[in-house]
Simulated assay, not measured.
Amino acid sequence: TNKGPQHDEAWLIFIDMVNNQIPTFEEKAEALHYFPMFRTWFGLLGLCKLPWNDIAPANNSETEEPAKIPEHVQNYLDLYYGITGTRMTPEDMVEQSERTYNFQRIFNIRMGKGLRVNDKTPYRTMGPVTPEEYESRAERYDKQLKETVGYDPTGKTVEEKIAAMRAYREDQYEKLTDAVYKRRGWTENGVPTPEKLKAIGMDLPELLEVVEKHI
Rank of each mutant, 00 (worst) to 15 (best):
K3H: 11
H7A: 07
E9Y: 15
W11S: 11
F14G: 11
M17N: 14
N19P: 00
T24R: 02
K28A: 07
A29Q: 13
A29F: 06
E30M: 06
E30I: 13
E30C: 02
L32R: 12
F38L: 09
L44G: 01
K49Y: 14
L50E: 15
P51Y: 07
W52G: 02
P57E: 15
A58L: 10
A58M: 11
E65V: 13
I69P: 00
P70F: 06
E71P: 00
V73I: 14
V73D: 03
L77V: 07
D78Y: 03
D78A: 00
Y80P: 02
Y81F: 08
Y81N: 11
I83P: 00
P90I: 06
E91K: 11
M93F: 05
M93S: 08
S97P: 08
S97F: 02
S97L: 01
S97E: 12
S97G: 08
E98T: 04
T100G: 00
Y101K: 09
I106H: 05
I106C: 01
I109D: 10
R110H: 12
M111S: 06
M111N: 13
K113F: 10
G114S: 00
V117C: 05
T121G: 06
T121Y: 11
G127P: 00
G127Q: 02
P128G: 06
V129D: 12
P131S: 13
P131W: 13
S136F: 01
A138V: 08
A138Y: 01
E139Y: 05
K143T: 15
K143W: 03
Q144G: 04
K146S: 06
T148Q: 14
V149W: 04
V149R: 07
G150D: 12
Y151S: 03
T154L: 01
T154N: 08
K156M: 03
T157F: 03
E159G: 01
E160W: 09
E160C: 05
K161D: 15
K161R: 15
A164E: 10
M165I: 07
R166P: 08
Y168P: 04
R169W: 10
E170V: 13
E174A: 05
K175S: 14
T177D: 11
D178T: 03
A179T: 09
K182F: 03
R183P: 00
R183Y: 04
R183W: 02
W186C: 09
N189E: 13
G190P: 08
V191L: 03
K196S: 07
K196V: 08
L197W: 01
A199F: 00
I200L: 03
L204N: 10
L204R: 12
E206D: 14
V211W: 10
E212V: 06
K213G: 02
I215D: 13
